[in-house]
């Protein structure tokens, strides 16, 4: 499966930037909000008024990546989101309490469902194709990628819009902060969409050679999963040029990364992508965007990697979280 176009809105200057993360900044503070574009240039102003931030970010990245790919009507729209449209959910629940379950306004309710982003994209495009949203915590984006891959196996010529979006709100920050999720690093958010197909276009970014998802694996299971992923692609561990890791020093999940990072791929250079996008469940979509963009440009933004690799052919995006969700995504240069 080839990534033929990609777009990201993140706490970095990542959207429609000619220079790839040239001015990236290390996130500080407790919350990292996305750098959002002027949506009126991308979405009809009359439609913007009903869209919450996550919908705007999702729709903008979806439209941007479709435009890059020259695709007006994708054969499938597949979205991953862990928390869905939290802002509208919060508004709806608040009004439900305040108004004692009476006189509820429809907009927040309609827009609060998890599949709103994918649905809005389809409505704007008048696209009646396959449309699915995966809500599987830290595996939401990976499940979307797996679904896209299966769809392409059944429909080899298809062009698929696949991506992920999650937003941070005052409510979600307050609740998640209590779990100690953001004590050592900022909470984040973002939206990334990709157009994928079974053949590369002229401007293709990278090839997704495989995705593995595991839940609370033993060290042996993790080792087996990595070995199987590499063997399927005729690779051995030494041929991984870079790991895009969701680890953060001192984070609650740091122990989960031990096997892959410090044992199996200890000598491989690493980029810790959550330093750029913050902590959120579908952050691997940003890691995948980052890895694919580096593979396309064959350049790593200055200061992002302590020991940049000399060759950039095969990257591994690796995520592990405190709940035990692990994912491995293998990206290869086109």
């Amino acid at each position: 499966m080839y990534i033929n176009a990609a777009s990201a809105i993140s706490p970095q200057l990542s959207f429609r930037q000619a220079s790839f993360l040239q001015d990236w900044r290390l996130l500080t503070g407790h919350r990292a909000a996305c750098v959002e574009p002027a949506y009126a240039d991308i979405i009809e102003p009359k439609l913007i008024r009903r869209m919450s931030r996550i919908i705007r970010m999702g729709v903008a990245t979806a439209m941007d990546t479709l435009q890059q790919a020259g695709c007006t009507n994708p054969d499938a729209i597949i979205t991953g989101t862990a928390y869905g449209c939290l802002e509208d959910t919060g508004i709806f629940l608040k009004r439900m309490v305040e108004n004692q379950e009476e006189m509820l306004t429809p907009t927040a309710f309609i827009q609060s469902t998890h599949n709103t982003v994918g649905a809005q994209v389809a409505l704007l495009l008048k696209c009646h194709s396959y449309n699915n949203t995966f809500v599987q915590r830290s595996h939401s984006f990976e499940s979307s990628l797996l679904d896209a891959d299966m769809f392409l196996k059944e429909n080899p010529g298809a062009k698929i819009l696949v991506g992920a979006a999650d937003e941070l709100t005052d409510y979600s920050y307050t609740i998640l902060e209590r779990f100690g999720l953001f004590r050592s690093h900022p909470a984040g958010e973002g939206a990334c969409y990709f157009v994928v197909g079974s053949e590369p276009d002229a401007g293709a970014f990278a090839r997704v050679n495989g995705v593995r998802t595991l839940f609370r694996p033993t060290p042996g299971k993790l080792e087996d999963a990595l070995a199987a992923l590499l063997a399927e692609n005729g690779l051995f561990a030494g041929e991984i040029d870079l790991v895009l890791s969701g680890n953060l020093p001192g984070a609650a999940a740091a122990r989960q990364y031990e096997v892959i990072e410090n044992q199996l791929l200890a000598s491989v250079p690493k980029i810790y992508f959550k330093l750029l996008c913050g902590e959120y469940p579908t952050a691997t979509s940003f890691g995948t965007w980052l890895g694919a963009t580096i593979l396309k440009s064959q350049a790593i933004p200055a200061g992002l990697c302590d020991a940049p690799p000399t060759l950039m052919r095969h990257f591994l995006v690796y995520l592990a979280d405190t709940a035990g969700y692990h994912s491995l995504t293998l990206l290869t240069k086109c």
């Binding site: 009359k46 009903r50 108004n99 006189m103 509820l104 306004t105 429809p106 907009t107 309609i110």
Partner: peptide, 17 residues
């Protein structure tokens, strides 16, 4: 103003509230 049917529901609730 170019309002639509969803807005009509919002206006009914607004008048009531």
């Amino acid at each position: 103003l170019g309002l639509d049917s969803i807005d009509a529901l919002e206006l009914i609730v607004l008048m009531q509230q």
